[in-house]
């Protein structure tokens, strides 16, 4: 992947540092122009820990000045997330309370719009934006595995094994999306559309990396997973119906149909066996699970509102 196109002063200074292979100490003093600049910078720093960038030294992943910048950006972002998404205390039994918290969310949905009225151009635009996560589907959650004790660790792997195609690369969920993109004539190379995505997509992606990359935030990472899986089956059905209505290729429809069935399983596993086991072993993580779940739902709602407003669908 190429280094993303700068969106302001900070991402411009960061891109220059990555190209030169050295991060000057002054980088920490560069103020972000706006939220898009700040979140693109954080996204770029995170990407050094996923797949890196063409022509950028892999050593920079652990370069102290870049880590210091990442830390500054993360602290502000986490404080914002905690301010925006303050969860209620979950009752008992835990699984029912978590399902209820998620089901009570009435966030905006792009899937319903795609099902009924989106144009082909609008739908292809959505698919391009979805590449930022779907091409690394399940990866941010994989960081969490070694941070868990026996019960939740085994439970998470039971779900992740399915996400990763049970060892068959042809069934890897991110690869199913690649096949869908190729069939639609869209680019399927990793990060191809990063210069086009609205800031809301960067924020969603950064939240998953933030939760996944910090052991301290393991509860939020698994709460995010639970909310993601528990709001996937029915919307995936709507997406599949919308894609069929628009005559899009079967490979892309198959991606969403796979998620109707897989996520009907995964939501039960994520809520009951994964988050349930985590909270059983670490009761203090219950509030963090709820925080992560609300962050997942709230950030998707912000993205959906942005898109529906742009499409004149509100």
């Amino acid at each position: 992947m190429r280094i993303p196109k700068a969106r302001g002063e900070l991402s411009e200074a960061l891109a220059a540092a990555l190209q030169e292979g050295t991060a000057p100490a002054e980088l920490a003093d560069v103020a972000a122009t706006d939220d898009a600049d700040r979140h693109l910078s954080l996204w770029t720093l995170y990407e050094l820990s996923y797949r890196g960038f063409d022509g950028v030294d892999d050593e920079l992943e652990w370069q102290p000045e870049l880590l210091a910048l990442r830390h500054t950006l993360e602290r502000r972002f986490e404080a914002e997330l905690r301010e925006w998404f303050s969860p209620p205390e979950l009752g008992e039994p835990f699984a029912d309370a978590l399902f209820e918290l998620i089901e009570n969310d009435d966030g905006a949905s792009v899937a319903t719009f795609v099902q009924r009225e989106a144009t082909l151009d609008q739908t292809l635009e959505l698919l391009r934006y979805r590449t930022i996560y779907h091409l690394k589907e399940a990866d941010p959650t994989a960081w969490v595995v070694p941070r868990l004790t026996t019960g939740p660790k085994a439970a998470l792997m039971e779900l992740q094994y399915d996400e990763y195609g049970c060892g068959d690369p042809n069934r890897l969920h991110s690869h199913l999306f690649v096949r869908g993109l190729d069939a639609c004539g869209l680019r399927s190379d990793y990060g191809a559309y990063i210069d086009d995505v609205p800031v809301e997509v960067l924020v969603q992606n950064n939240a998953m990396s933030l939760f996944g990359l910090h052991r301290r935030l393991r509860g939020a990472a698994l709460g995010h997973l639970a909310a993601f899986e528990a709001t996937s089956s029915l919307p995936s059905r709507r997406m599949a119906q919308g894609l069929e209505r628009l005559g899009l290729p079967t490979e892309m429809i198959a991606y969403y149909e796979e998620h109707v069935e897989a996520d009907a399983v995964h939501e039960q596993l994520a809520v009951r066996t994964i988050c349930g086991a985590l909270v059983e072993e670490e009761p203090a993580q219950a509030a963090e699970v709820a925080f992560g779940a609300l962050a997942c739902l709230g950030l998707e709602d912000r993205f959906a509102r942005r898109m529906l407003a742009e499409w004149g669908a509100e």
């Binding site: 089901e103 029915l234 009907a264 399983v265």
Partner: peptide, 13 residues
């Protein structure tokens, strides 16, 4: 479920 015999999440609505 519209995907018998598998669950498709319909029970939630």
């Amino acid at each position: 479920s519209a995907d018998q015999p598998w669950c498709d999440g319909t029970h939630k609505v």
